[in-house]
Amino acid sequence: MQSTLLKVKESRWTSRLLSPIILVLLILVFAIATGGRFSNPRNLKMILEQALVVGTVATGAVFIFATGNVNISMGATTALVTTIAAKAYMATESVPVMFLVALVAGVIIMGLTALLSTWLDVRVLYVTVVMMTLLSSIQMSILGSANIQLPYDMTSGMGDANVPLILFIVFFIIATVLFHFTALGRKLRYIGINDVCAELTGFKRSRYLLIAFLVAGVGVGFGALSTIVRNGTITTDTCSTLNMDCMLAIVLGGMSCFGGSRSNTYSAIVGAVMVTVLNNGLLMLGVSNTILQAVRGVVFIILVCASQTRPQGLPSRDG
């Protein structure tokens, strides 16, 4: 019995199946608890729409997390990119320009974050602590006291054309191919497993960290565009919970936030839906927004603990 259980625990499929099962259970629980309000098609559609932004950014974040690095400035980056792209649209009234600006801005800011980490030889986490506040203050000074109100015609038109969904699918497919079907993903994971060993296998950490950030930067650009389409109004509150949502999504999806072997893009999509279901369901049950943040924090800590595999007995010993 014990051996069967262990086999199940060690199986590669357990973590991949576990998350969808929990997701279905969550939906059922919320559906019953809210007396069906949660499961009505309009609400479910809204959840999926919300999940698209988180899913897009989280998919990019998988590349960074796989290397064993934690980035906490992705939300702030997306917020700033959203603001810059919206400004660009207001100035030119051209959708292609807005797309281009979003992508370029996302890639540049993320690339810069990676370079700062490697140039200064400071861990990504610490660089992003600084970046988070820095980018937020830049966004605030760009916005000033006024919010940016984008024309309704443009946002609703793009919404009707399912632009966020298309952006997500395009990015997810590209990311999945890169991550699972080319050497890139394997190298990133190997860096997450043991970065010294990866360096000695010829995978230059600084180079692959930059590549990971550039891919994530594309995700940020796409995520920013989806945010513009969904929200229509850009305020200092835009994307304020996005970073936590992404980190939660990644661990809820079954990936370890310490990267390594079990990293996969699939976690981002399943996790993104789970996070939004959790947010939406709890709000619907009357949990206040402030308490919701606390609940999410607790869930995150529990998952991080659970996803850390502890060595049995003493590490690196024989006999």
Binding site: A183, R186, R189, N194, V196, C197, T201, T309
Partner: peptide, 19 residues
């Protein structure tokens, strides 16, 4: 610490030179 990625699978490690 330097020659093998302990938390990784045997495949992760051996395949790393054969991409």
């Amino acid at each position: 610490h330097e020659s093998v990625g302990l938390p990784g699978s045997i495949r992760d490690n051996i395949a790393s030179t054969g991409y």
